[in-house]
Design a protein around this nucleic acid. Structure first.
Lengths: 187, 187
DNA sequence: GTCTATAACCCGATAGAC
DNA sequence: GTCTATCGGGTTATAGAC
């Protein structure tokens, strides 16, 4: 055959992930991605109709991986340990895949309502917080917990902890938040 | 005079702020900025040597404005009200100036150690949290409080609260965090 | 200090041959 | 399915005239 297949959607996705982690978001262009796969940019459009579609696929893949990591971290652990393990796993994921984590939040609003990786992730957080606060559907508590993790990661990524480090801000915030969520009995 | 001054660093900064808020970060280019001022892109380089320098100036300006807004919100208020007012003012600022807020965090790490707007902002948060926890330099507590606000804003901006809204996640997180920080007596 | 002109790069995406 | 060639657009930044 004159033009045998050199790649596939999965290959492209994998190469894009590697490129994203090694060179950051600036390096993820259709040209450099094609080069990493040994082909031309125009060939990619046979597998992903646009860059936007490719980024959406990346975001979905990232959300799935994060969900899996958190699930593993929480497995077979009592509530207090599960919370800490999940927080550590969350931050570890964001540190290891900073550009992917950013992309997950930049590429459109992941629908928490409709079934999919984003909803799975949300349900995990909801259940986790529920085991600590004793409420079945503690939406507000899960939002607070997620906001804290997401924000801590943002500050850390922006280098705001400089040389002095976060000074136990993570541990203290986590303890305070779980303690406060369990005690607070607002409606 | 053949070429009278049409602009100044302050004019440019003001126009850049307007452009940033109306059109988002994509619209803030040297070309469009110059066009908004009625001149050519190359003329801007007499006032700001590069786009990077201009963005740094924007970030500094934004940090000053945020600091001022928080200072006003906290003034003459008992601790509990001050915390809530500051949180509201913080989120209000981020909602009103989303692109500027992003730029403040994207344009290099603001040094919290060296004197400047960023340190002023940090000191305000540190003092505010101190009035609630009763500790003089509660670095960890301030980090936790800031992380929560920053993270809540990020989730809100990414549209993760969809139609159902944050479900009191802000109020509950704030209450839980302040309660927990005041009660927790970890070192 | 502003102008014109241009250098030197980058990007996503498409047409049509094979 | 991949290729070459190219369209059409964008950007920061500089050189030199006035």
């Amino acid at each position: 055959m004159p033009y045998p297949a050199k790649t596939s959607p999965d290959d492209i996705l994998a190469a894009a992930l590697t490129l994203l982690e090694t060179g950051g978001p600036q390096e993820l262009t259709m040209r450099s991605l094609a080069a990493a796969l040994g082909l031309r940019a125009s060939s990619l459009y046979r597998h992903y109709t646009s860059r936007e579609v490719l980024e959406a696929a990346l975001a979905t893949e990232g959300t799935q991986r994060l969900h899996l990591a958190l699930e593993t971290a929480a497995a077979q652990q009592p509530p207090a340990e599960a919370i800490r393990n999940v927080a550590d796993a969350y931050l570890h994921f964001a540190r290891e895949h900073p550009a992917l984590y950013d992309l997950m939040h930049a590429a459109g609003p992941p629908k928490l309502a409709t079934p999919g990786p984003a909803k799975d992730l949300w349900n995990l957080l909801l259940g986790l917080v529920g085991t600590v606060t004793g409420r079945a559907d503690d939406t507000a508590g899960a939002v607070a917990f997620w906001a804290f993790l997401h924000g801590y990661r943002g500050l850390e990524r922006d280098g705001l902890f400089g040389l002095s480090g976060p000074q136990q801000g993570l541990a203290r915030g986590l303890t305070a938040l779980t303690l406060g969520l369990a005690l607070d009995d607002r409606a």
